[in-house]
Write a protein that binds this DNA or RNA. Structure first.
Length: 420
RNA sequence: GGAGAGGUGCGAGAGCGGUUGAAUCGGGCGGUCUCGAAAACCGUUGUGCCCCAUGGGUACCAAGGGUUCGAAUCCCUUCCUCUCCGCCA
């Protein structure tokens, strides 16, 4: 959410941001309502001031034993008026809020303007070339009996999977490896949060109101299954005043993620590429405003470190404005190369949200005791999403005998050096 | 699931429906004293919004409604915390 005052004073910047992000938001209506709002506030508040004065006078009159019925009758009328204006104000403020929460964050100046085709490849690491054509992961996994697509679909529907034997073990190995890397080497604190949150939490990080259709929801309790650990972990500090000395706060968390992927069924989603439930290790940071751009770079580096340790080829993209998510000011995508299906697959998005989420979730800090509260900046990035990492391992570490070598860093977790 | 208790400022904690933005204590900050420190004493110590803006106004005592001329204080709803009983991984 942007600051209303900021919008009022920077209309053009906001308009441009909306256009570049290919969002729809009615700035004119917002400004209109803002003017109305301020007019009414002026009226209501002077009426209140009068009411407050009168009310003191009545108290004095009573104390002095004077007759107050006339004064009270007058006040009754005034109170009625105030109530009416107040109701009107409330309607307007609600309308303003509804418009406000639909205005996207403003892209950073370094973000290329355009759509998906304008994403910029920032760098490529490792070698995507293969010396033989490996099988797609879904075939090799099926053959080795480490992922069971058919039975998972039978009980839960399509796009759910069940890992088995060393497949399940590989999943756990990756989770442990990533968490330990971020905790031991990158200085993050591990969090194991709830996997279900309330509506307000989804609002805080910006999933709602836009993405309601993309989430699983427990109707009776109005609770949502998290689509990413970003939601519970960022919301840990919702409505809090943090101590400036404690910043930056860096959390990493493993959670399963649930996404309905409504309307996303297509032919490019075979196997593990797009599933309704997947595991992910996430990194979340709360930082001082002046540091957030540096923190974005180190966040990206932390995510890259995972792929480098796994020795998987990848590239980094700077997303163009049109591809940027609603709440992000800037975002890097990391895509791992899968040699079997011959595709670059997104395994991480590292974003700086500036104060956009913090304002919405009301996460602030004070530099020192007694200093003015300021909004923190929040960032998050996957480190990494598991299924596509598994795809890359199954395809890139495949041998021409149809076995899978276990990446060196995972061997101590797997207990074996080959899956056969 | 059943029965209770409670949610007040940075913390603890008070608050007959009318100078309560909120007593008191503690903490923080500033000062006096001191060679320095401690102690003691004095002062100070919230956020948002609006405006004819070095000032004025208004709102906020979990959240939202209601009663009233006037609500932290009374009523209703919701959320959260705690205790006891039951049930359960």
């Amino acid at each position: 959410m942007l600051d209303l005052k900021y919008i009022r004073e920077n209309v053009d910047v906001v308009r441009k941001a909306i256009a570049h992000k290919r969002e729809k938001a009615d700035v004119d209506a917002l400004l209109d309502l803002d003017i109305k709002r301020r007019t009414i506030i002026g009226e209501v508040e002077s009426a209140r001031a009068e009411q407050n004065r009168a009310t003191l006078k009545i108290a004095e009159m009573k104390k002095a034993g004077k007759e107050t019925t006339v004064a009270i009758a007058d006040m009754r009328r005034l109170a009625e008026e105030i109530k009416q204006q107040d109701d009107e104000l409330k309607v307007i403020e609600d309308q303003i809020y509804q418009l406000l929460i639909r205005i996207p964050n403003i892209p950073h100046e370094s973000v290329p303007v355009g759509g998906e085709g304008d994403n910029v490849v920032l760098k490529t690491w490792g070698d995507p070339a293969a010396d033989f054509q490996p099988l797609p992961h879904y075939e090799i996994a099926e053959r080795l009996g480490i992922i069971d697509f058919a039975r998972a679909s039978r009980m839960s529907g399509s796009f759910f999977v069940s890992y088995r034997g060393l497949g399940a073990r590989l999943e756990r190995a990756l989770i442990n490896f990533m968490i330990e890397l971020h905790v031991d080497k990158h200085g993050y604190t591990e969090i194991l949060p709830p996997f279900v949150t309330k509506r307000e939490a989804m609002f805080g990080t910006g999933q709602l109101p836009k993405l309601e259709e993309d989430m699983y929801r427990c109707e009776i309790d109005d609770l949502f299954l998290i689509p990413t650990a970003e939601v519970p972990v960022t919301n840990l500090h919702r409505e809090e005043m943090l101590n400036g000395d404690d910043l930056p706060i860096k959390y990493t968390a493993y959670t399963p993620c649930f996404r309905r992927e409504a309307g996303a069924y297509g032919k490019e989603t075979r196997g593990l590429v797009r599933i309704h439930q997947f595991d992910k290790v996430e990194m979340v940071k709360f930082v001082k405003p002046e540091n957030s751009w540096d923190e974005l770079e180190s966040l990206l580096q932390n995510a890259e470190d995972v792929l480098q340790a796994l020795e998987l080829p990848y590239r980094v993209l700077t997303l163009a404005t049109g591809d940027l998510s609603f709440a992000a000011a800037k975002c890097y995508d990391i895509e791992v190369y899968a040699k079997g299906i011959e595709k670059w697959l997104e395994v991480s998005s590292c974003s700086n949200f500036g104060d956009f989420q913090a304002r919405r979730a009301n996460i602030r800090f004070r530099r020192q005791r007694g200093a003015k509260p300021e909004y923190v900046h929040t960032l998050n990035g996957s480190g990494l999403a598991l299924p596509r990492t598994v795809i890359a391992i199954l395809e890139n570490y495949q041998t021409d005998e149809g076995t899978i070598k276990v990446p060196t860093v995972l061997q101590k977790y797997m207990g074996v050096d080959i899956i056969k």
